[in-house]
């Protein structure tokens, strides 16, 4: 996979934005700013998906993550008192240092493995970016999803149904306990 200079610049820019967003999630003083950092991260990743010619997933990322999940987080934050700063925010001292060290070690391992990759292992498929541009990403992904992976697809819809029922049950339990 080679990238043109413009693409390279955009990849690096969006990568930097994504990392900045993720960092502000864990560093922000107030949880609402954490949610905003998450939003920035999601939008940068969506742009990246689109550049990797996964248009539909990029837009789905915007609709599902940026449009719905972050909004749900903000809703929950407002419901449990959005104005108060997140006082009880984080661990300090030894435990935090230990946690960070663990993560740094993990990151170093992954980086080492990625650098050792020799690249071209594994058979290549036929869905090149040109094919996607010609036939359309939605059409190709839809065909794959509904012809090859129909069972996981149906299971995902069952999962979403369970999610809906669960959310309704939680809300009902709350309403009943208030009435008592």
């Amino acid at each position: 996979m080679t990238a043109t200079p413009l693409e390279t610049v955009l990849f690096i820019a969006f990568g930097a934005v994504a990392i900045a967003g993720a960092l502000s999630v864990i560093l922000a003083r107030h949880a609402v700013y954490s949610a905003l950092g998450m939003l920035v991260n999601f939008v940068a990743l969506a742009a990246m998906y689109i550049m990797l010619s996964a248009e539909f997933l990029g837009i789905a990322q915007l609709i599902v993550y940026a449009g719905a999940i972050v909004v749900l987080f903000l809703f929950a934050l407002m419901l449990i008192g959005g104005r108060r700063p997140a006082e009880q925010g984080r661990l300090t001292g030894g435990l935090a240092a230990a946690g960070s060290a663990l993560v740094v070690v993990f990151l170093a391992e992954i980086a080492y493995l990625v650098m050792r990759l020799t690249g071209t292992a594994g058979a290549k498929g036929t869905v090149t970016p040109d094919v996607i541009a010609q036939l359309g990403h939605i059409q190709l992904l839809g065909a794959t999803l509904l012809l090859e992976y129909i069972l996981p697809f149906e299971l995902a819809s069952v999962l979403l149904l369970v999610g809906i029922v669960g959310a309704v049950m939680l809300a009902r339990a709350r309403r009943q306990s208030r009435q008592e």
């Binding site: 939008v43 915007l62 940026a66 449009g67 909004v71």
Partner: peptide, 8 residues
């Protein structure tokens, strides 16, 4: 649809 969600 996605951009309308962001304007919100």
């Amino acid at each position: 649809v996605a951009m309308a969600g962001l304007g919100l």
